[in-house]
Design a binder for these strands. Structure first.
Length: 570
RNA sequence: GCGCCCGUAGCUCAACGGAUAGAGCACCAGCCUUCGAAGCUGGGGGUUGGGGGUUCGAUUCCCUCCGGGCGCGCCA
């Protein structure tokens, strides 16, 4: 299906192309704020082909174009051909799209039902989640929703770090320094203490690392005691993670940790050997990647026979391909693992799994003002504390702004606003940049923040409730396109679908966030300047109600794609 | 040393290769007898890190230097 805004763009391009009378490639631009037009076509690139000055071309085209039903006029302005929409037809089109699609407004069929596996969150067992895990979890969840909205079949898989040498250190530390009472009280807290303790002790006595390695090998070989304890660690951790996922309202289709692939790595190694992709080197088994421009080889098996996360990621990818038959696999993992994924993807292609589109959706690290976060050195901010603080602050603000709400409602709003603020703070900026963690910034409840957007929804809903929650379906009154705020709102609503499309294509949720912020600004301006319930005529009132309903719907849908909920009151 | 990413207003961030580079925060001055002021309006603030290049046009693409981050064979 084609949305109205897209249709109008195509009309403009087609009309211009025909008027130009030659094979020319055209681009579209949005005119700056001061210019009274809805689209602009720069004529500078045509100068060479048409052998005329851009200004002349624009003038000639303005006179020659035959406009379609969604366009009102075309006029030259400098080297630009400026096009204005037929407001009445355009508004009717957008309102029609909104009414017809309802909660699906903005969706598209780019995915064609294909499967996309999204690997996200993936915290390490036996450690609390820190704010560092926030990005993967939230960006991954947003990409999940965005892909679903673009007619993909997303499969969310939480690839838990529940295997590897770290468990050797943990098992050693457990047997050496365990505080039994502390473990009973707070298992994950005690495991973290042991983890930190081991690191400190091993600095003094490196031989501890050998002992840890022994424990790791015992675990990999199926030693019953090691297995039993390991399972216990995983169970405690999962319970702790689940509390956070519940708060964040994030769900997964699968939680297949690294350990799930324990028995699938042998086959991978055999395959790689038979295919001649893997070779022995210094006792280890490696895959050379120089031929594809990667100097560092991927290590499939250590010289002591143990597997590595490379091996598990390889087995994981192959399992996913065989089980789910995905068109794409997304890895929502920090940019510090770039090389790892380049190696992984290159190796998969060498092994004949080149039909899948592998994407490392990377993002910058969250750092502390004093430097990189380090769980081992206790320099870490726990996610749970951040979420609790966000809800507490939101709760205080609700109390101040809206004391007449019932206590349960205040609690609910505090959750929606507080958690929303955290998610939005992350999703509203380009994921490639590093973030220096700052309580005030992450927990901001004013300015460009989730509550600002949620408040537009609340205001819109307020009007709709007073109107009896009935959205008129009348033909849209052309009078309701006349003022600047009205027209700005209509065009803004019309742009939403293409923003969704771009966000999916580029794996950039922040495009949706930026759009919604702009929509909120436009709506607040509309709300301030344009009376709805007290409009001069009944026709105006009914059409403006449609606009308000559209704004509420797009805000709810758009925030929903980011995993942010909206309250009815706040 | 080599490779990748980032550098935009005092701070935090936007900006399909297009017109006068925009927001939020902070600061200053206004707006509640009209749908919720978690809102709106106005104001000051910029050699887009420096220097070259490509282009009709560069914050955007290329080169180089500076600054920061990350990575570079048996951790994940």
């Amino acid at each position: 299906m084609i949305y109205t805004y897209e249709a109008a763009k195509r009309e403009a391009l087609e009309a211009t192309r025909r008027a130009a009378g030659a094979e020319v490639s055209l681009s579209l631009a949005i005119p700056p704020a001061g210019v009274a037009a809805d689209l602009a076509i720069p004529c500078f690139p045509l100068a060479a082909a048409l052998r005329a000055a851009p200004q002349e071309i624009a003038t000639r085209l303005a006179g020659a174009v035959k406009l379609g039903p969604l366009l009102e006029s075309a006029h030259a302005s400098g080297g630009y051909l400026n096009v204005t929409f037929a407001r009445s037809a355009f508004a009717a089109g957008v309102m029609g799209d909104l009414r017809r699609l309802g909660d699906r407004y903005g969706s598209n069929d780019a995915g064609g039902g294909r499967t996309v596996v999204i690997d996200f969150s993936a915290p390490n067992v036996a450690r609390q989640m820190s704010v560092g895990h926030l990005r993967s979890t939230i960006i991954g969840a947003a990409l999940y929703e965005l892909h679903k909205f673009a007619d993909y079949r997303p499969i969310g898989d939480n690839h838990l770090g529940d295997w590897g040498t770290q468990f050797g250190t943990l098992l050693y530390a457990y047997h050496t320094w365990l505080d039994r009472a502390g473990y009973e009280r707070d298992p994950v807290g005690e495991l973290l203490r042991l983890y930190v303790k081991f690191d400190a002790e091993a600095r003094r006595d490196p031989s501890l690392r050998d002992q840890a390695r022994q424990w790791h090998l015992r675990l990999e070989r199926g030693d019953p005691d090691a297995r039993r304890l390991w399972q216990e660690f995983v169970r405690h951790s999962l319970a702790a993670f689940q509390q956070i996922y519940d708060l964040l309202e994030v769900r997964f289709d699968y939680t297949l940790g690294e350990s799930f692939y324990e028995d699938k790595m042998g086959e991978v190694i055999d395959t790689a050997l038979r295919a001649g992709v893997a070779v022995e080197d210094q006792g280890a088994l490696i895959v050379r990647l120089d031929d594809v421009g990667i100097k560092t080889p991927l290590i499939l098996r250590r010289s002591d026979g143990a597997t590595l996360y490379h091996t598990r990621d390889l087995a994981t990818a192959i399992y996913r391909i065989r089980t789910f038959h995905p068109a794409k696999i997304l890895y929502v993992v920090g940019s510090d693992q770039r090389l790892h994924f380049q190696q992984l993807f290159a190796t998969l292609r060498k092994l004949g799994f080149g039909d899948v589109d592998y994407v490392h959706v990377d993002f910058g690290l969250i750092q502390l003002p004093e430097g990189r976060m380090s769980t081992r050195r206790g320099r870490v901010v726990f996610l749970e504390d951040v979420l609790d603080e966000a809800i507490t602050r939101a709760r205080r603000l609700v109390e101040e702004k809206n004391p007449e709400l019932s206590e349960p409602e205040k609690d609910e709003v505090a959750g929606i606003v507080g958690i929303g603020a955290i998610k939005y703070a992350d999703l509203s900026q380009n994921r490639v940049k590093n973030i220096v963690f700052d309580w005030e910034r992450m927990l901001a409840l004013d300015g460009d923040s989730a509550p600002y957007l949620q408040y537009t929804y609340v205001r819109a809903r307020g009007i709709l409730r007073k109107a009896g929650d009935h959205i008129p379906e009348d033909p849209f009154d052309p009078g309701a396109t006349a003022t600047i705020p009205e027209w700005a709102l209509i065009t803004s609503l019309g742009k939403f679908p293409e923003v969704v499309q771009e966000a999916v294509q580029a794996y950039h949720p922040h495009l949706v966030a930026n759009y919604l912020f702009r929509l909120a600004q436009v709506f607040h301006g509309f709300y301030h300047d344009v009376p709805v319930l007290q409009a001069d005529t009944e026709a105006l009132r009914r059409s403006r109600l449609q606009l308000v309903a559209g704004a509420a719907a797009v805000m709810r849908i758009g925030l929903g794609l980011l995993g942010v909920r909206v309250p009815e009151r706040m």
